[in-house]
Amino acid sequence: MENKIKQSGNRQNELVHILHEVQERFGYIPPERLAEIAKKLNISESEIYGVLTFYKAFSLEPGGEHTVTVCMGTACHVRGGQQITDEMERKLDIKVGQTSADGKFTLETVNCLGCCAIGPVVTVDGKYYSHATMKNIASILKEY
């Protein structure tokens, strides 16, 4: 992480980039690292916290092994995206944004994946599943 910060030249306007790097590297932003970033960029921890809680792309908690994303865009929504989300919540016994007890899945929603023709869409770790239904959810999850 230190190298990443060095590469960005300790510039405060590089904060978002650094947070992206950290998020990618660890899968989340470890809270105990905030002080380190703050020190390197000469800003307060609160300033960083404000930025990272603003963007949905950053998380302060480690996610599950796999990230399940259900599309809630208009096209997917009218084809039953909400029911898919509800079913996912029931199956994994969590709410959107949470991670299952076994640490395997984190459930998220997204507002459009840009492939409305094949909706409702579910992705797992970036792999797309088209025409998701209440029935085939179980088989999707079983793959992991």
Binding site: P31, L34, S44, E45, S46, I48, Y49, L60
Partner: peptide, 12 residues
């Protein structure tokens, strides 16, 4: 709020 909901004092 403060970073990680720290007390004001801990947040400087």
């Amino acid at each position: 709020g403060t970073a990680l909901d720290k007390t004001l004092q801990d947040a400087g």
